[in-house]
Design a protein around this nucleic acid. Sequence first.
DNA 1: AGAACCACCTGGCAGC
DNA 2: TGCTGCCAGGTGGTTC
Length: 270
Amino acid sequence: MPELPEVETTRLGLVPRVVGRRIRDVVVREPRLRWPVPRDLAGRLRGAAVSAIRRRGKYLLFDVGAGHLLVHLGMSGNLTVVSPDRPVRRHDHVDLVLDSGDIVRLNDPRRFGAVLWVRDPERHALLESLGVEPFDGAFDGAWLRRAAHGRRVPVKQFLMDSRVVTGIGNIYANEALFAARIHPSRPAGRISRPRLDRLAAESRAVLSRALAKGGSTLRDYVGSDGAPGHFQLEYAVYGRAGEPCPACGAPVRVARQAGRSTFYCPACQR
DNA sequence: AGAACCACCTGGCAGC
DNA sequence: TGCTGCCAGGTGGTTC
């Protein structure tokens, strides 16, 4: 589930119940995530207050005392606030027990997620090379033009490159390229400036719509039953191979790029 | 330097 | 029903 809108929805759901609280304890049931959960994590966090929860790309940063707790949800992770009587389920790997009694619980079947301690986010390897945020004003056609200059990589892979712009995953890359009418395998450096302007705008628009949907299910998303209960955006092309293009009716095509499925309309996207 | 692959892991589903 | 193979929302690391 977690693309940028889901991560931001998670953040918004956590803030009111977590910011300002102290961490009473940390329970690590399974430390083998993408990287091992630091052994001294509980020692660092116990007793500390969470002063803010921020997001950079798809990384969540809990500001706590002398450093930050970094959480990434990988492909299958979710972070919910649950009450202490909630039974532990399969893949409930990490709990933050708050002084309110609430528990912030990470469930992640595939274990591609991460829970790390970060002293200085500005100089952390996972964060320092990240590109612009899609909702930042700096993300526009000029930014894409600079980053794409001379590059022959297919624009879809370019758009998913977190060093260029953070948080655009496979679904939204497909949707943004469709909305901008750009063929996913076109070399990034060979797209005109006006089309890059449109690509930036459409990328932002697609993410905004998804975020608006996520926001409307916020209560469910971090609710007491923990059911993610999303309510998905209608995708124009993603997952719709063979179905008619919503713009022209031609069958949506699926191809493989860098090991990922790419959905596009061969008639509309050039 | 840039691009193409691989790796990590579990669960769900189609097909037999 | 149960098995096998394939696919899945991410991204760092290795190889060419």
